[in-house]
Design a protein around this nucleic acid. Structure first.
Lengths: 211, 211
DNA sequence: GCCTGTGAAGACGTTCACAGCA
DNA sequence: TGCTGTGAACGTCTTCACAGGC
């Protein structure tokens, strides 16, 4: 149980478990077995127990897991017991949709700054009240607002440049929606996650073609 | 090299290779080595050669790969040598952003039908000219338009129901943007891909907390 | 010499099967 | 009895290292 390397897939699943647990909690379910939770999440029960075992012991033998407790513990593991401050660059359709997206706020993520390069957009306020700033002030405003995670929604050809500037601030993490592979240094204190519709669609296309 | 099971990760990487190759082709580069391509894609060179080896031999020893040929071959493998027809349900901010998103069209994906449950939205036309239909006509219009892949952008609590109806049409694939684990039968002719911002953000939160 | 193609080795992640405990 | 926690077995994916060919 000590300092094993934790698979990336484990973290992803923890996030999924937490969503299922939230639903169970809403439904007044107080105890759940790994078998039941596994069904809800589409994984193997042993997988859930293994995943949790990386971080400690959370269940009661012969009983299962107390939903609220486990949910709390998983959120704590994921670092969701604090507010995370996001800065977003590229306020096109997608950028605006993300800022408006309610699931972020619910999980403790909040947008504290928005940027665009288009003079027509600068100065505008979004429905949330957030003002769109010129990208030229990225570093300055990110520091002022205490942004920790950068969200890139620019066209692909601008993404790398924006990422470089984010790293220099430095922001600690980047959520990249642009369909490019960002070149970032093997950086200890910085992590990039890609959200890539195109790749997912291509996966579908492949399976529908081959299958 | 014959009928080995192909790793899911291989397909995902092929998609990424194709993007990098497109960029190289745009830049008038005609030949690329696995080493160079690997750098661009952030993977190991041997990985690229292994991935390609599942599907045949595409390179020239001592030389590398001809960019345009390889791009063509990868697109063919992925099934991108045809137009894919998409039906989208849930025309909130995100849904509208996706329809407007240019990267889909570029890759041969086209939205042929859009649906929403909100009477205020039904009958409206998007900038692309696409009309928003009532979700009650989902089955009928999907069949008429020959939609093959469904895109779910509804709130999470509606997603499962929409997925069920899509399966019954039947659509062959689903791209799910709702943050829920869809329960679908172990279905031969149907594949679900999830695009999950929340999970990706949680991943970042974890790494920024633990690191 | 250079770079691909590939068997073999290695690393990693998942599942099994059962010991341990309520 | 029921369900968790976990070492060991298994399977999968990645990387190495070199043979094959331009």
């Amino acid at each position: 149980m000590k300092f094993l390397k934790i698979p990336a897939a484990t973290i992803t699943r923890l996030s999924i478990y937490s969503r299922a647990l939230e639903e169970l909690a809403d439904g007044q379910v107080s105890v759940v077995s790994s078998k039941k939770l596994a069904e809800l999440c589409g994984v193997n029960p042993a997988q859930i127990r293994k995943d949790l075992a990386y971080f400690g012991q959370f269940g009661v033998r012969g009983v299962g897991y107390y939903v609220k407790e486990l949910l709390f513990d998983i959120k704590k593991i994921l670092g969701l017991n604090k507010e995370w401050r996001l800065a977003i660059v590229g306020m096109g359709n997608l950028g605006c949709a993300l800022v408006a997206h309610e699931n972020f706020e619910k999980q403790g993520y909040s947008f504290v700054a928005a940027f665009d390069a288009d003079p027509m957009k600068i100065g505008h306020r979004l429905a949330s009240g957030l003002e769109i700033h010129s990208i030229t002030h990225l570093e300055e405003i990110c520091r002022e607002t205490g942004a920790e995670i950068g969200v890139i929604c620019t066209p692909p050809e601008r993404a790398q440049e924006v990422a470089n500037r984010m790293l220099s601030i430095p922001l600690k993490g980047i959520l990249n929606f642009a369909p490019v592979q960002l070149q970032v240094p093997e950086c200890p204190a910085c992590k990039v996650e890609n959200v890539d519709f195109t790749v997912k669609l291509d996966n579908l296309a492949y399976h529908l073609t081959a299958g």
